[in-house]
Write a protein that binds this DNA or RNA. Structure first.
Lengths: 166, 166
DNA sequence: GGTGAAAGGTCATTAAG
DNA sequence: CTTAATGACCTTTCACC
């Protein structure tokens, strides 16, 4: 789905001011209220906006350390089975990807502190089917889930065809 | 801040049904309306809930491929400067961490497809101060930003102690 | 627990491509 | 002729008492 400038401005506005009323959004964007609603509905229908969800920060409840873990899986048990087993037994895993390259799975995990992190890695390693793990700790999170610049990049790309507002 | 079972149930409920009215939350959790409101206020104040934000899926606007990129930085220019330069010039970067281990920066990037991904890596490599990059493509995203199991894990851990605010 | 104010949802109409 | 934006009406929810 192609995004236009209005979509990008709306997403930026909603991200900066999460609970901003639709009426206020409309005022700031110089469009009617129903337009904001219909745009949001369209974005939702096309899968651009997954939903309006509460953003939970693990740092808030004292899981302050983030780390990455590359996992090599023992061939024969199947990636999917091991992945499900991992997901079920280690709640500290935040993200899980199957990746190309040396490793099979790429994980992002959280822990209260560096010492507890060791326990998490241990539990990961003990999951049946896992051969080897390699980890690194995040010393600093510059940003996370930064999508707005990409949204605006995509909107600018299709600016030529974009429906001209105003 | 310590979480108790009620916090966990509330967060789970709000995640499953984002825009559920406070009165309905109270009914389903068998607590008073004001309790829901005060809990939410506390969670917000303590930084557990960042806000109710629209979850934007890059797949929705045709950035379907995700990849990881480990970046080695040329010592002397400073990590921070290079990181800022990267962030400013490559909108496709979704996450950026400074990490321990062989690499200096760990990136997660998005692109419309594998071919466009090459262009993204090229632009990353051309940023001044970057020595070497090593990348891997995500073949499958099992899950992303899965915090609820961790919330419930943390709530269970402190179940024995009395729920108290720090 | 009740009441006023305000937000969201729905719809027919109108302008534009 | 199709699509999108608009303004108004109506229902529900929230905040305060």
């Amino acid at each position: 789905m192609k995004l236009d400038r209005l979509d990008a401005r709306l997403l930026r506005l909603l991200t900066d001011h999460p609970q901003l009323p639709a009426a206020e959004c409309a005022r700031r964007l110089n469009v009617a209220r129903a337009t904001v609603a219909s745009r949001l509905e369209r974005l939702h229908a096309q899968g651009v906006v997954e939903g309006i969800v509460p953003k939970i920060r693990h740092e808030g409840f004292d899981y302050r350390v983030v780390a990455f873990c590359s996992v090599e899986i023992h061939q024969g048990l199947g990636h999917e089975a091991v992945a499900e087993s991992l997901a079920a037994s280690v709640p500290e895993i935040l993200d899980m990807y199957t990746v190309t390259g040396g490793a099979d799975l790429q994980l992002r995990v959280a822990a209260p502190g560096p010492s507890e992190l060791q326990g998490v890695f241990d539990r990961i390693s003990q999951v049946p089917g896992i051969m080897r793990t390699s980890s690194s700790i995040a010393l600093r999170t510059h940003f996370q889930d930064r999508v707005l610049p990409l949204v605006e990049h995509a909107a600018d790309d299709s600016a030529g065809r974009a429906p001209r507002v105003e």
